[in-house]
Amino acid sequence: MRPSLSRGLSAALIVITLAGCATRSAPPQRQAQRPSPPGGGYVDVGLAGQASAFEAYTRRAAAIDPSFADPAEIGQRLRTAAGYEPRQLEAGMIAYAALAAMQEPGFVAAVRANRDVARRVAADPNAALGLPGATAAAARANAALARRGEALAAAGQRVRKASYSVQHQAWSRARISGPAAAERLAAVKQAAGYRADPADRARLSAAIAEGGRRGGASPVVARGVAVAALTVLGQDGAARSLMQEPRSGQCLRIAKLNYHQCLAAAGTHYEDIYCLGLHAMADPGRCVVEATRPARRAGL
């Protein structure tokens, strides 16, 4: 038996230590007013807060266990996977990419040596890709995003497959109807949005430090590199205008809409598991992976 559903689609503080930046020019006044970590480094509260929303959601959702023993477990995991708001996750992706790009010392040094690029980068995010070290910074950002998206998508496929195997257990085929069905959907909708955890700062720092490089400057990666450059220069206001990317934002919104529609149509517990795996995990995971790929050109 197959799930009979369509397959459509606070702020945390973090210290980002930049290796090789022991000798550098004096920062602009705005940066000098910020707290400095022992031994040097760069502190940014807003950027890290946005990146934490992305890191926390992808980590928590990817950790969902594909084994299910009863409806109570399903309900809890349905809410865990609903823990993102599309626009917040869209900005979080770009912030996460920016923090990864800032781990490239050569890029950071080049930004500090070219302070006049701020205006160009604010007007055109792709301008940051022409800076020395930007290719390596983009590769770091690409790899960082891809890791999160691939892990989430793979976990979602495991849960989706469990919606088939769990049907051997009679409780999974029980019908969900009436007030119980409405309450379950309402609980999922209320779960949306990032809720900070005291340990998120350390988890974000550890995730960014994983490193790795992967080629390709997608629109999201390009914005991440641009935001990194502007943040290093203390141009936080200009960076805020780059925290959206239409293609990726639309992908995340469709995934969330499909999740809600799927649950609204589901009539059994195993169908809930299917909705969870496909639309709440695999779909947003694929959105993140797709966000690392260059935009397709018209006609291709």
Rank of each mutant, 00 (worst) to 15 (best):
L99V: 15
L78R: 12
V121T: 12
A123G: 10
E73A: 13
V166M: 01
A144T: 07
A123C: 03
G106M: 06
L99D: 10
A100C: 14
V108Y: 01
E73R: 09
A137R: 03
A151H: 10
Y164V: 09
A162P: 10
A98E: 13
P71T: 08
A154F: 02
A123V: 10
A136P: 08
P71L: 04
G92A: 14
A101Y: 15
E104Y: 12
A113Y: 10
E150Q: 03
A128Y: 04
K161Q: 12
R140N: 04
A153D: 02
A122G: 12
L145D: 09
L89Q: 14
Q76F: 14
A151L: 01
G130F: 04
E90G: 02
E73N: 03
E73S: 14
V166S: 00
K161Y: 00
R79P: 05
M93I: 07
A138E: 07
A101V: 15
R158G: 04
L145F: 07
G83F: 13
L145W: 05
A138Y: 03
V117G: 01
Q76S: 14
A151V: 10
Q103T: 15
A143E: 05
V121M: 02
A72P: 07
V111M: 00
V166G: 06
A153L: 11
A134N: 11
A128V: 00
M93E: 14
T135M: 03
V159Q: 00
I74Q: 00
A97D: 09
R120P: 03
S165G: 06
A81Y: 01
V108L: 10
R160H: 05
M102C: 15
R160C: 08
D116P: 09
G92L: 13
A139E: 01
D124E: 14
A143D: 11
A128Q: 00
A143S: 06
A127P: 10
A155C: 08
L129V: 08
L78M: 14
G149S: 02
I74G: 09
T80N: 10
V111I: 15
R79Q: 15
A155N: 06
E104F: 13
Q157K: 12
K161S: 00
Q103C: 07
P71N: 06
N114V: 02
P86G: 05
A100R: 11
V108P: 03
Y164D: 07
S163N: 12
A113P: 13
A141N: 04
V111P: 10
S163H: 11
A153P: 06
A141Q: 05
E150G: 05
P132H: 04
E73C: 00
H168L: 06
L152F: 10
P105T: 00
